Simulated assay, not measured.
Amino acid sequence: MHRFKDLEIWKKSRLFCSEIYSITSKFPESEKFGLVNQLRRASVSIPSNIAEGSSRNSNKDFTRFLQIAIGSAYEIETQLLIASDLKFINQQEVISLLKNLESIIKMISKFKSTLK
């Protein structure tokens, strides 16, 4: 069992979640139940799955939850690109968020490879 609060991947993904909440607060009200909801749920999913997986008794189970977190990250990437296409966020914001997201994905992948 791992202490999720000590994991850098959990800390970084939690901060990223706050960034997503901040950026989506500027989206049009009409997107409250669309992209805003999707982005927020997927961003919450990353640290949540890391935390839940850390409580499992085997590395195999933890690895499965880390894979789900990575899936949520790719979901966010797609949604950010769509939000950019729709002009809900500017190019600089997208680049910054995607850079942070890529870093999180790499960290999770590297950590996941140590569990095998």
Rank of each mutant, 00 (worst) to 15 (best):
F62Y: 14
A69D: 13
I68K: 10
K32I: 11
L39I: 04
A73V: 06
T24G: 00
D61M: 04
A51K: 15
Y21W: 04
V36S: 11
N37Y: 09
A73E: 09
I68Q: 10
I68H: 06
F62H: 11
E19G: 00
S55V: 01
D61R: 01
A51F: 11
E52H: 03
F27L: 05
Y21N: 00
S30Y: 07
S22G: 08
L66I: 13
N57P: 07
L39A: 01
N57Y: 13
L39Y: 03
L39K: 02
T63G: 07
I20A: 00
F27H: 11
V44D: 13
L39F: 01
I20P: 00
I23Q: 03
A73F: 06
I70P: 06
F27G: 05
Q38W: 01
L39C: 01
K26T: 15
S43T: 08
A69V: 11
F27I: 08
Q67S: 13
N49R: 12
E19D: 12
T63I: 15
S55N: 04
L66T: 15
I70G: 10
L66V: 14
S48E: 04
L66Y: 15
Q67P: 01
I70E: 09
S54D: 05
Q38K: 14
Q67W: 04
I50F: 14
S30G: 06
S30F: 07
P47A: 09
K60D: 13
S58I: 08
Q38P: 06
E52Q: 07
F65K: 12
V36D: 01
I68A: 08
K26N: 15
L39W: 04
E19N: 05
S48A: 15
T63C: 14
S58L: 10
I50T: 15
F62C: 09
I23E: 06
R56H: 10
S54R: 07
S55A: 10
G71H: 10
Q38L: 09
K26V: 04
T24K: 00
E29W: 03
A73Y: 04
R40V: 06
V44R: 14
